[in-house]
Design a protein around this nucleic acid. Structure first.
Lengths: 220, 220
DNA sequence: GATGGTCCTGATCGTATGATCAGTGAAAGC
DNA sequence: GCTTTCACTGATCATACGATCAGGACCATC
């Protein structure tokens, strides 16, 4: 019954991570079951525990793999721009947002489902989930916040932080294809068209940042 | 053991909804158990099924109660402003965001935890959860989108929809007290200070909206 | 050709879950 | 005073969960 050739070495581990990504994104951490992931990966359930020990271990491995890939691209883009000298806010925002959208390594759909996962993790109450975000995203976030302050004189640390968080929140919530944009706009906007969404997000966020950078005398 | 006076009639039903709000917000839909909710409400677990039939029924009842209360306030504020004539974008954004923050009816903490819940529901993949958002939020959303278009000539339906969604996404993700703002800003911003956050959000969002309203000739 | 290691499986464990049901006590209606 | 209705409970059900375990297949190395 087993195919005579075992496939490329170590492939089942990646298969599990792929399946975990799909199932976790669709049903959340608690909603996803090890059985469903194993079935999606077409391996025995015990193999998940063999590779990742616990459900949390599997989740973190999957989370680290994908977020690491995205953040490497983000920082690479940022470094290229910084090396070139003067940067526009638009460039920074685009470097921050586009890699997440393009992160879908399955050809069919972009990284929208992973976006919901980040969102769920980053707004969750649990300490473990907070730790995940802190470990895997904070270092990258600090570099982008610094870059924003560099590009916009007048933007202090507090405002740059709020700006960064607003941008990520605004964009992340729109990456999952929920069909809500289509519904509310009577079809004139669509969350399937991630490129159009990103273009609007860049305009929206950049203007918002510039406004935060020019707070009048009495701010708070 | 039972107190001789049964408390104010129908109070245990509200107690259950209160407890459900707390537990669902802290652990998510799948992570929350009927047992934990019953314990928090200090009633027998079977009573939850007596009042709400299923776990989904309980969730929807709790969701409807809280979102209804928030949206009533939102729309009331909007109507007052519309009746007064000219409206600023800032007013609309504030009318949209502040009620959610102030929605905490427990004195200790604001509606931050409920914000995570909306977020989880609105980005979830399940059809049932999409339906929840559509039923309980879309009518209110459409009125605010229309108001935005009224206040900003040049803002068409598609852009107003994106703007609305960006605003809600940006603000909602910052309402849950995760401590992330404090961390990233080295203490100069805090997500405990929801008033400061809201002030920044209004500045950020209003500028973003104005930018979306003044898209040059070649848009997309 | 035995040994050891790695990848992988089927069967099974204890537990926690959502849901159901028969029944209790008290108020309301007649 | 009897019955009906309502709010509520403790006990229990079937199921699905995460995790574990003993072992099998394969492939090196000696």
């Amino acid at each position: 019954m087993n195919p005579s050739r075992p496939p490329a070495k170590g492939s089942s581990r990646e298969d599990i991570l792929d399946a975990a990504e799909t199932v976790f994104a669709a049903r959340g951490f608690e909603g996803a079951s090890m059985r469903a992931i194993a079935e999606a990966a077409k391996v025995a359930q015990a193999l998940l525990h063999y590779h990742f020990k616990t459900k949390e271990g599997l989740f973190e491995a999957m989370f680290a793999r994908r977020s690491g890939a995205i953040n490497r691209i983000r920082l690479a883009r940022l470094d290229v721009m910084l090396a070139r000298g003067k940067i526009s806010v638009e460039d920074i925002v685009e470097a921050l947002l586009r890699p997440t959208i393009e992160a879908g390594h399955d050809p069919s759909r972009g990284g929208g489902r992973f976006a919901s996962l980040i969102l769920a993790v980053s707004t969750a109450g649990g300490d473990w989930q907070k730790g995940l975000v802190a470990r895997h995203y904070d270092p990258m976030a600090e570099r982008f916040i610094a870059a924003l302050m560099g590009a916009l004189p007048g933007l202090d640390r507090a405002h740059a932080t709020w700006g960064y968080l607003f941008i990520v929140g605004a964009a992340l919530t729109q990456m999952a294809p929920t069909g809500r944009a289509d519904r509310l706009s009577a079809g004139e906007a669509s969350d399937e068209d991630t490129d159009a969404m990103l273009a609007q997000a860049v305009i929206f966020a950049s203007a918002g940042l510039r406004a935060l950078a020019t707070v009048p005398p009495g701010d708070r």
